[in-house]
Structures are given as structure tokens and as C-alpha cells.
Simulated assay, not measured.
Amino acid sequence: MKRMTAGLRKCGMLVIALSFSALAMAQQKPQVVILATGGTIAGAGADATNSATYQAAKVPVDKLIAGIPQLNDIASVRGEQVFQVASESLRNDNLLTLGKRVSELAKRDDVDGIVITHGTDTTEETAYFLNLVVHTDKPIVVVASMRPGTAMSADGTLNLFNAVSVAGNKESRSRGVLVVMNDEINSARDVSKMINIRPDAFKSPWGALGMIVEGKSYWFRRLDKRHTNASEFDIDKIKSLPLVEIAYAGGNVNDTAYRAFAQAGAKAIIHAGPGNGSVAGPLVPVLQDIHKQGIQIIRSSHVNAGGFVLRNAEQPDDKYDWIVAHDLNPQKARILASVALATTNNTKELQRIFWQY
């Protein structure tokens, strides 16, 4: 009887020791929160051959996490469903809600990194917004997929695994908001969706920051523009975003969209022009008139692979008091203008901001 009692005590002590060991190991893992917003990564198609025809935003975050048990090997993961929408339907209010939640989590001691699952249509816009307004050096990673999880060669599972790996990696700190897809780590500031039907859709004209191979990150460069902790913008102080619209200009352009946006109350209009943000002759007096109404005119380029707009080239921007978007594409120029106009409407200050961010 005594031997049995002693044996039970030893077993009990072993169980307790193993429990403490398991707890210690769990505490050593990075604590990563996955904020889900919907998109293709949470989508489902009717058939495994449907890689481009499907319904987005169908799978909740708990099922996304449960579908990748290997996440437990690299991090302690928990999920939150912030929205469940296709990303083309996201509004400024959604950006503010998401940004404030990311900021709250980043301040917590029990959070080492944050992953946001997102639809690809506006991934670059949401990621750039967070890059501008969330003050933290903790990794914030936006991840998406080009194919739903029901498709052959679905990319979402590996993308999410890689995103959690990057978010939990201390080497990812202080690099700004990151976009992880197709084994690449790109800066939220630079990356854009270049094609809509392939898993290698997201590219930066200036190159990736790094890449992931079998869960390990390899880094090659850093972002030199201002972001996160170095940003003058703070999500905790932003209550609303001014209306900024994009007017696309090509051959045979007219002034209909520009005048309509001005009448609708836009505080700035992004001119998405060809080449160097070129402005057709008949549009020049129209844009001058609109600017006299207090509406900022920002010249950008709709060139896909890195439109670089030079000030006072093509148009005398100093004379007209216009702004150039530097190398930001029209949709990112809209995001930066919205954030900046929440604090200033001074043209020179706005141009400084476009150079620095």
C-alpha cells in the first residue's frame, strides 16, 4: 500500500512538472493575435477548380486557425473577427475601427505581433493606412490570398502560416507594417496588387524587404520612409477621415468626374494621370478653378509598376499650388491625403508629407 501511495505521488509530481514545463514552453512562444476582416482568404468556391469564381468572406477566423494546426508550433495564436466583408466594400469607418483595435492590441504586454487577414482588392490601402497611423514597433502583418481555400493549390494556408511566423519574429520589429504573400515580405508602403488571377500578384516596384522559406525569414532591406513610431499621425487622435476622390485620366478625358467630386464635397482630388501624372490641356483651367475652391489637387500616375511623379515636370506645380504624389499610386495617394488632411490643409505641408511618407 505504501509503495502504491509513493508511486502515485511520484506520478502526480511528474504530471505537475510536465504541466509547468508545457506552460513555460507556451509562454516562450510569441503571442500573436489574428484579426480577420474577410476577403478571399476566407472565401469558398463551389468546386475545387474555381480559383477565380467564388464567394469571399465566408469562413470565420476560428476555422481559418483550426485549419492550420502547425501554427501552434510557432506561436500562441488567438483570433478576433473584426469584420466579415469583401475588401472592395470596406469604408473609411472600417479603416478607423481596424486601426484603433490594432493600436489597442499593440499596447498590450501579452501581444508580440498582430496579423490581419484581408481581401486582396484593398490590401495595399489598409496596410498603408496602418503603416501611417499605428504607433508601435511590434510587427503588424497584413495577409491575403489570391485563391479561396476550396481551390486547387490554394495559397491562403501557407500565406497565413508565413504571416504568423513573421509577426512572431523579433527581427520583424520596427520595419513598419508588412504584407506577406507568396513567400515574400513586402513593405505596406510600396507593395501593390499587379494582377488579379495569380498568386504572385503583389509586388513592390522597389523590391521586397525579404522572403520566407519554410517558416524562416530572410531580410534584404529596410523602408526609409517615415512609418509607425516615427509617424506624426496617430490613430488614437483621428476621429474621421476627410473625403478624397480619385479621377482617372486617359485619352479623350473630360472634366465630368472632377467637377462632380468637387460638388460632392471632396477635400482633395487625386488626378490619376498617364506617365508623369500628365494633365491634358483642357483640364488645366478646370483643376485651377477647383483648387480655388479650397480643394487640393494631387497629381499621381496610373503607371502600374512605379509611376514616379516629378514636381514641376509636365505642369508648373509651384505656379498652380498643386501637389505631386511622389511614387505613390493613386489609391495610396488617396490614403495619405485623407490622413494628412485630418490635420492640415496647407499645400506646402501636404507636399512635405508626400515626400516623407
Rank of each mutant, 00 (worst) to 15 (best):
G7E: 06
L8N: 05
G12L: 08
M13W: 04
F20M: 13
M25Q: 15
M25Y: 15
M25H: 15
Q31K: 15
Q31F: 00
V33K: 07
G39P: 12
G43H: 01
A46N: 05
A48I: 14
S51G: 08
A52W: 00
A52T: 15
A57M: 05
K58W: 02
K58F: 09
L64A: 01
I65G: 09
A66E: 07
Q70F: 02
Q70C: 03
Q70Y: 00
D73I: 06
E80T: 10
E80S: 13
V85I: 14
E88L: 08
V102Q: 08
A106N: 07
G119E: 11
D121T: 08
T123C: 13
A127D: 04
Y128C: 12
V134H: 08
V134G: 04
V142Q: 05
V142H: 09
V143S: 03
R147M: 07
T150G: 00
T150S: 03
A151E: 11
S153Y: 14
L160K: 05
L160V: 04
N162C: 01
V164P: 06
V164C: 02
V166G: 09
A167K: 01
G168L: 09
K170F: 01
E171C: 03
S172D: 05
V177T: 15
M181T: 10
E184V: 12
N186A: 13
A188F: 04
D190H: 13
K203Q: 12
S204I: 04
G207M: 05
G215E: 03
W219K: 11
R221A: 14
R226P: 13
E232L: 14
V244I: 11
I246W: 10
I246Q: 04
G250N: 03
G265A: 07
A266N: 09
A268H: 00
A268S: 07
I270C: 08
G273A: 02
G281L: 14
P285G: 07
V286C: 02
L287K: 05
Q296D: 09
N304H: 02
G307Y: 06
F308H: 14
D318R: 04
V324H: 06
A325Y: 08
L328Y: 14
Q331A: 01
A337N: 08
S338I: 01
N345R: 15
K348H: 11
K348T: 12
